[in-house]
């Protein structure tokens, strides 16, 4: 019982802190661009505003559209819950949320939604093998001793994270141009509390991936967990500012590169380097 209570407390903390990570990344990005930028608490204000708004549901849509925000939220929370458990299962759980989101995007009958849905499934089907191989590499290198395999797996995972959290060079959260949208295109017909729930879910999922990377490669013995997390957030902000968006058909190349890095990690784990 104690364990469960503990887990639920951690979960609540993760949900509360998730928007902060987004706020921090935006803040660092803005500062790097020599802008003052919004405050780091802006994501909270956005959520609060959206939760208070009226919701408009497209008349074409079915119950899939209504149910999806709750499913996506449940899968993001479950992913965080299993962070200390079986990592493979999390990949499948996140796939459940993505499946529903992609369906909901098609449900409204808009071409934007279809585009987002198709692109999301396209990118994620290449990200999944990379993620599984990273987990495999980590599984092959048990123990706390830090090795080359950890570094390679971490780099591979970083690329997966860029894809999974809709960041540059795979996707761009700051734009609503149809040529560049992926995740945003799927949310285009959502509004009000449903949109807030989906954004919160995306932020929770992002925090999950960041924690996974920190847990995988950062030497927690040397540096405290929170410090690593902050470092990772700054690294991602640097990547986003320093790189342009890839053409959609170049994205698989990037993810295949991540697969190769993961394979190298496996090789070095098998060789015991």
């Amino acid at each position: 019982m104690m364990v469960i209570t503990n887990q639920i407390l951690w979960l609540a903390l993760a949900i509360i802190l998730a928007p902060l990570a987004s706020g921090l990344i935006t803040k660092v990005k803005n500062n790097l661009r020599l802008r003052q930028g919004q405050g780091i608490l802006q994501p909270y204000r956005n959520l609060w505003k959206l939760f208070g708004k009226e919701e408009i549901v497209p008349a074409n849509a079915s119950w899939i559209f209504r149910v999806t925000p709750f499913v996506v939220f449940a899968t993001s929370v479950a992913a965080v819950f299993f962070l200390s458990g079986d990592l493979l299962a999390i990949i499948f759980i996140l796939a459940l949320g993505r499946f529903f989101l992609a369906l909901a995007a098609l449900d409204a009958g808009s071409a934007f939604g279809g585009m987002g849905s198709s692109r999301e499934m396209f990118i994620s089907s290449f990200a999944e093998p990379a993620a599984c191989l990273v987990i495999f590499a980590v599984y092959l290198t048990p123990g706390a001793t830090w090795s080359l395999a950890h570094l390679l797996a971490g780099l591979a995972l970083l690329i997966v994270i860029l894809a999974e959290t809709s960041r540059l060079p795979v996707d761009n959260q700051e734009t609503h141009l149809e040529l560049t949208m992926v995740h945003e295109a799927m949310l285009l017909d959502y509004s009000g509390p449903a949109l807030a729930l989906l954004e919160l879910s995306a932020q929770i999922k992002q925090l999950f991936w960041l924690c996974l990377l920190v847990g995988t490669i950062c030497p927690p013995v040397l540096l405290p967990y929170g410090f690593c997390l902050l470092g990772l957030i700054i690294v991602i902000a640097f990547i986003e500012v320093g790189i342009a968006k890839y053409r959609l058909f170049k994205v698989p190349d990037l993810l295949v590169f991540s697969v190769i890095l993961a394979l190298l990690a496996i090789v070095s784990a098998l060789l015991g380097v």
Binding site: E55, I56, V57, P58, A59, A61, G109, S110, L188, P193
Partner: peptide, 13 residues
């Protein structure tokens, strides 16, 4: 708990 009003609308066109 948080929801305001919900109404049917058009898909964004």
């Amino acid at each position: 708990l948080l929801q305001g009003k919900t109404r049917l609308g058009r898909t964004w066109d």
